[in-house]
Design a protein around this nucleic acid. Structure first.
Lengths: 220, 220
DNA sequence: TTTCTTTATTACAAAATTGAAACATTTTTT
DNA sequence: AAAAAATGTTTCAATTTTGTAATAAAGAAA
C-alpha cells in the first residue's frame, strides 16, 4: 500500500483529504507543521507528499526546496493561488505535479496515480501485453512463469520495447549491443535474438519477435 | 534533437506553436488533418505529439484512442474547453499531459520537457550527481570513464538509487538480490558491495556507498 | 525450380560472473 | 584494553554468459 504524507495546516481540509485517500486505497498521514514534516519525512518515508502551499511561514516554493534537501520523494503541490508564475516556479523547483484549489477529487486521485506511476517507472515493473519485465533484475515474467535474461538479451528486449510498432534494423541492434567499438561477428546478433526468443517462448510468448527479412525485427 | 508532431487545424495557432518549439530547440512538424497524422505517425516517428482536441471530426478523446493504436508515442492534449470531465477522460485514455488554451508558452515548454523526461526515463540514462547510469546496458559513466557493471552490481546500485537519502538494510538488499529463495552466504552481499565500490572508484566515485554499521548502507 | 542471400540453430571454447571460504580490518561491547 | 561482532578483501572453483564457427532452414532472385 502506498503511503502519502499530507502537509496541510487547515485541519478540516486535511481530514477530508485523508478520508478521500484512505477510501481510495492509500495510507495517509497528516502533518500540520512543515518543520515537523521536514524532520519526520525520513522516518515516515512516504511514497508521495501532498504539500499545501498556503501553510504559514515562508512561501511554498522555498519549502519545496527545503524538503528536497531531506528527501527525493515525489511532491504534488496544492495551492489556492491560481497564478501562472507559481506554476512555472513550482515545476522548476522540482514539484512533480501541481493542483489548484478547489480541485475535483477525481482529478487529484488521477494525478496522484500518474505521479506514482511515473516515479515508479525506474523502480518497478515494465509491462508489455501480459509480459512483466523487471529491467534491473534481468527477469521476465508471465503469470507464474519466470525466466532470467542475460544482459544481452535484456538490451535487445529493451530496444525492441522502446521501439514498439517500428521495425528495428539489425544495425541498430548491433550498435546498441556493441557500439561498433570492435568487430563482432554479424551472427552474434542472430544468436542472441535466437536465445531471447527461446526464453520468451519459455514464458509462453511464441512468435513475439517477428523477422522482417532484409529489414529487421519487430516486436508483436 | 527531439521531434514534436503538432496536430492542429488552425494554421495560425500551428504556426505560432511551431515557431515557439523551433526556437526552443525542438524540431516540429505540423499536420492539420488527423487521419493523415494517423497514417504518417509511423514514418514521422515523433518523440512527442501535441494533439489539439478541437480538430474537426469526432472528439479528441476518441482520436487519442485511435492514435494509441498506431503508436505509443507520448501525447499532450491541447484544448480550449476547460472542462473537468475532459481532463479526467483524457488522462484515463492515456494522454501523458493536458493543457488548456490559452496557455502560457513557458508552461507549455515546461510540460513538454517534463513529459519527455518521464517517458525517456525507461530508455535513456539515469543520473546521480555526475554519474550516468545506463540501467539496461549495465554501464556507468562519469565523464569519459566508463565501466561495466554485472547484474548483481546493477541490482544493488539500483536499489540504493531508488532509496536515496535512506539507509538501506542488508536484509533489504539480500531480498532484492536473491529473494530469500535459497540460502545464500551472508558474505556474498558484502562481496558484491565491495565489487560495486571498486567499480564506482574506477570512475572516481570514492566513498559513494557509506556503511552505517549495524544498520546498513547509504548512497552519498 | 534452382541458386543465392539472409536468417536460425546448435555446439563449443574462451571469458565473465558468482558465491563461498579464509583471512583482514574496523567498530562495538564488555 | 580485550573480546566479540560486523564488515571488508582476496582468492578460487563452479556456473553462466558470450562470440564464433559449422550447419540448417527459409525467402528472395534468377
Amino acid at each position: 500500500m502506498k503511503k502519502i504524507l499530507i502537509i496541510e495546516d487547515e485541519q478540516i481540509v486535511a481530514k477530508e483529504l485523508c478520508e478521500l485517500l484512505n477510501s481510495s486505497g492509500y495510507e495517509s498521514i497528516v502533518l500540520e507543521n512543515f518543520q515537523e514534516a521536514k524532520k519526520e519525512i525520513f522516518n515516515i518515508s512516504p511514497d508521495l507528499v501532498l504539500l499545501d502551499i498556503n501553510i504559514p511561514y515562508k512561501n511554498g516554493e522555498l519549502l519545496l526546496q527545503e524538503l528536497r534537501r531531506e528527501s527525493s520523494v515525489p511532491v504534488i503541490m496544492v495551492t489556492s493561488r491560481n497564478n501562472e508564475t507559481d506554476e512555472v516556479l513550482s515545476m522548476s523547483y522540482g514539484a512533480d505535479d501541481y493542483i489548484t484549489k478547489p480541485y475535483n477529487p477525481n482529478i487529484l486521485l488521477l494525478r496522484i496515480g500518474a505521479v506514482l506511476k511515473r516515479t515508479g517507472i525506474s523502480l518497478e515493473v515494465q509491462k508489455y501485453k501480459e509480459l512483466e519485465i523487471y529491467l534491473q533484475k534481468g527477469i521476465i515474467k508471465r503469470g507464474e512463469k519466470e525466466v532470467n535474461l542475460t544482459k544481452n538479451e535484456m538490451i535487445i528486449l529493451n530496444y525492441l520495447l522502446a521501439h514498439q510498432n517500428k521495425i528495428v534494423t539489425r544495425d541498430e541492434l548491433m550498435t546498441d549491443l556493441w557500439n561498433n567499438d570492435e568487430y563482432i561477428n554479424d551472427n552474434a546478433l542472430t544468436v542472441n535474438i535466437s536465445r531471447l526468443r527461446s526464453k520468451l517462448k519459455e514464458v509462453g510468448y511464441q512468435d513475439a519477435i517477428e523477422t522482417r527479412k532484409k529489414m529487421g525485427y519487430i516486436l508483436l
